[in-house]
Design a protein around this nucleic acid. Structure first.
Lengths: 224, 224
DNA sequence: GTCCGTCTCCCCCGCCCGGGGGAGACCGGT
DNA sequence: ACCGGTCTCCCCCGGGCGGGGGAGACGGAC
C-alpha cells in the first residue's frame, strides 16, 4: 500500500508543486491539502496520512503549534515533515523539538523531496538533509555570509543573548529591551556587547542585518 | 493554438508548481523550463514561447538581466511575466522598467496565476494584479507593517535616499556611506534623516528592519 | 569543594548618531 | 522669471551607544 501524504501550506503554488513532485511516484499518494495548521487535526483524523508535509510559517496556526496539536491529540499520529524556506529558521528547530521528524527545504530538488518523504515514512529522522549541507557549503566567504554562517555554526549565543537579539531585530532600544525583560539597562548593554562580539558586528544595525541574513529572524512575520 | 509558456526559476519546486497549475488549462502549454536566466536566450530562440514566466532572483543571471537580454536579442520576443515572492521587491520594478509585461506573486491563487498568463499572452500589461492589492490590504496596522506599507505606498524616497538606505541595510556607517558616495558626511546625515522621517523610523536599525520587512532589501543576496 | 558559564549590575569614557535649524546650487515645470 | 524638489554642505547640541574594565550570585559539572 502506498505512502499517503497530507500537504499543509498556505501557498497554493507550493502545494501544487509538492503534489506534482510527489505524484510522479507510484507508491506515494497525496490524500489531502490544507492551507493552515488550524485545519490539520480533523483532516488527520479523517485521512490518516502516513506523513504530513507541514509548512512552519502559516497565518492562523503555525507549523509548530499544529505539530504539537497533532501529536498531542491524535492516536497513532502521522510522521511530520517540516517544510521551510530558510535553512536555519529558528522556528524549524522549535518544530523539531515539538516532535517533528524531519525538515525539508523548499528549494530542494524533486528527488530530495521524494527521498525525504520516503525516509520519514519509514520512521527515519531527517534533521540534516543533504540540501542543507550543500547550501551551507555554497555560501561564499564574503564579509556578510561569514558572520551569518558563524551565527549558525557556532550558535554560541546564550539563551538570553538570543532573546536580546530578537528584540534588537524588532527595533527596540536598550532601554526598551530592559523594560521588556525586566532587568537593568546595564544588563542589556552586557548582552548586546556579547551579541556584537559573537556575531562580529560593529553595532546593533549590523547585528540585526546578520540576524536577517542568517535566517535567525526573517521578513514577513512580525511575531507577537 | 495554445498559449506556450517557458518557466524560468531556480527552484524546481516552484517550476513544478507553475507547471501543475498551468497544465490544468487545455489552452496553455508549458513548453520548457530553465533554472537560470543564463539559459533563457537559446531556449526562447528554439521554443518561441508566447510567455516567459521569469523569476527575478536567480543565481547566475537574474530576471532583470535576462529580460533585457531577451528583449534586446530576440526578434518578436515573448511576453515576459515576472514572478516574485515579494510584493514590493525593488528588483521587480527594475524588471518592469527593463521591459517585462507584468508581475505575479508566487503566493497568488492558481486561478490568478492562470489569469495572469492569459492576460500577458493577450498583450495586456499586469502591473498591479488583484493579489497585490489584497495583500497590501491584509496588512494589519501593527507598528512594523505600517512603516513597511508606507515605504511601498508613498515610495517617497528620492533616488539618493534609496541609495543611502541600501547602504545602511548593508551595515555601513555614515562615514562609510559618505566615502562610498563621494560626498560629505553631513550630506549623508541629511539623507539618513530624510529616510528615517519618511519611514517613521527612530534610528537606522529600525529603518533597516523596515527595509527588510518591506522587501526593499531581502535576505539571501548580499549584492555586490 | 572548586571551577566555569551565565545572568545580573556597576563605573568611566569617547563618539557616532540623530534632531533642529539654515543655506546655496541646480534642474525642470509653469 | 519664478518656484518646488533634490542634492549638497554647514552649525550646535544632547543622548544613546558601545568599549573596557570589574564584580557578586547562582547553578551545574567535575
Amino acid at each position: 500500500m502506498p505512502i499517503t501524504v497530507l500537504l499543509v501550506d498556505d501557498e497554493p503554488l507550493v502545494r501544487a508543486g509538492l503534489r506534482a513532485v510527489l505524484e510522479t511516484q507510484p507508491d506515494i499518494e497525496v490524500v489531502g491539502e490544507a492551507a493552515d495548521g488550524a485545519a490539520v487535526i480533523p483532516l488527520v483524523r479523517r485521512l490518516r496520512p502516513d506523513v504530513v508535509a507541514m509548512d512552519v510559517r502559516m497565518p492562523l496556526m503555525d507549523g509548530i503549534e499544529a505539530t504539537r496539536a497533532v501529536l498531542r491529540t491524535v492516536d497513532g499520529p502521522p510522521r511530520i515533515l517540516v517544510v521551510t524556506t530558510f535553512e536555519n529558521d529558528e522556528y524549524v528547530y522549535e518544530a523539531l523539538r515539538a516532535g517533528a521528524d524531519g525538515f525539508l527545504l523548499k528549494r530542494a530538488r524533486p528527488a530530495e523531496i521524494v527521498h525525504a518523504v520516503r525516509l520519514v515514512a519509514e520512521g527515519e529522522s531527517l534533521l540534516f538533509p543533504a540540501s542543507v549541507r550543500r547550501l551551507a557549503a555554497s555560501y561564499g566567504d564574503g564579509p556578510g555570509n561569514r558572520a551569518a554562517r558563524d551565527l549558525l555554526e557556532r550558535a554560541r549565543l546564550t539563551e538570553r543573548e538570543a532573546e536580546v537579539l530578537r528584540l534588537m531585530a524588532r527595533g527596540l532600544s536598550n532601554a526598551e529591551i530592559a523594560a521588556r525583560l525586566v532587568v537593568g539597562t546595564e544588563t542589556v548593554k552586557s548582552h548586546v556587547s556579547g551579541v556584537l562580539a559573537k556575531l562580529g558586528a560593529r553595532d546593533r544595525t549590523q547585528a540585526v542585518i546578520t540576524a536577517y541574513e542568517s535566517g535567525f529572524v526573517s521578513a514577513g512575520r512580525t511575531g507577537t
